[in-house]
């Protein structure tokens, strides 16, 4: 016997899907900006494993010579990114849904089990929960990353006006100024978002249609005898 279970509230679904194209525009316009001074790489000393980005990459997606374009889109969509993210966090806090998302004491142990399970080392099934330990860490982490992008972005955008309230602007590490550090962190957070996106999409594909559909409709079909992992009254039979 099956039943429908409410999984994601309407607000969460909107925040999630608004963020998708906005983050895409932010990353795309960010690359247009980055192109004008593309100094980051993975490597040691004079040895470079990978340069961000190879000329063919810019060429293929017409990302070169578009600094002004990039800045314009970036500083318009940053508003939507920031406001949507802020509303999302406020919603999490006031609705109590943060309880299912933020890490708990047992989260790290759980997350290790999830990783072992995904790597096929652990054979037994995972306990049923809206978000497992690995998801709690990943989703809370990506909120912190978003916050980091917002702060380092603001630091790069208005380095003089915000120097008094963003202490990392006064840092100096290995000859780099706080402004340069902000730009460095801003870049790597963006690479982090892209990594998150790839793993996220792979995991969603693996979890299957029922799970994905829940991010559109809000509901998931579950076996009737399973206990609802969600302690909200909305998680009743429909």
């Amino acid at each position: 016997m099956k039943r429908l279970e409410k999984k994601h509230s309407l607000a969460i679904r909107w925040f999630h899907w608004v963020n998708f194209p906005v983050l895409f525009v932010m990353v795309w316009s960010g690359i247009l900006i980055y192109w004008a001074n593309d100094v980051y790489r993975i490597g040691i000393g004079s040895w470079t494993l990978f340069k961000f980005f190879p000329p063919a990459f810019y060429e293929k997606f017409s990302l070169a010579f578009r600094l002004a374009d990039g800045m314009a889109w970036h500083f318009v969509f940053a508003w939507i990114f920031g406001i949507n993210g802020l509303l999302y966090v406020l919603y999490l806090l006031f609705s109590g849904e943060w309880r299912q998302l933020f890490p708990r004491r047992e989260t790290l142990r759980e997350a290790v089990q999830v990783v072992l399970h995904d790597l096929r080392i652990r054979k037994t099934p995972l306990p049923r929960a809206k978000f497992n330990g690995a998801q709690r860490i990943a989703y809370t982490g990506v909120i912190l990353m978003g916050f980091g992008s917002l702060l380092t972005g603001l630091a790069i955008y208005k380095p003089v006006q915000t120097a008094g309230i963003l202490p990392f602007l006064s840092l100096s590490l290995w000859g780099a100024t706080g402004y340069e550090i902000s730009r460095f962190v801003h870049f790597w957070l963006t690479i982090g978002f892209c990594g998150f996106f790839l793993i996220h999409v792979a995991q969603v594909a693996k979890a299957g249609w029922n799970n994905f559909r829940a991010m559109i409709t809000g509901y998931e079909i579950v076996p009737a005898e399973t206990e609802s992992p969600v302690e909200s009254p909305a998680a009743t039979r429909v």
Binding site: M1, K2, R3, L4, I216, T217, Y219, I221
Partner: peptide, 21 residues
């Protein structure tokens, strides 16, 4: 019979939600 109803209900909701999407 109940499972059929649940599936039908899900289809209706999905249709609406996916049109929105």
């Amino acid at each position: 019979k109940n499972d059929g109803e649940i599936e039908a209900q899900m289809r209706r909701m999905s249709r609406r939600s996916f049109l929105w999407a």
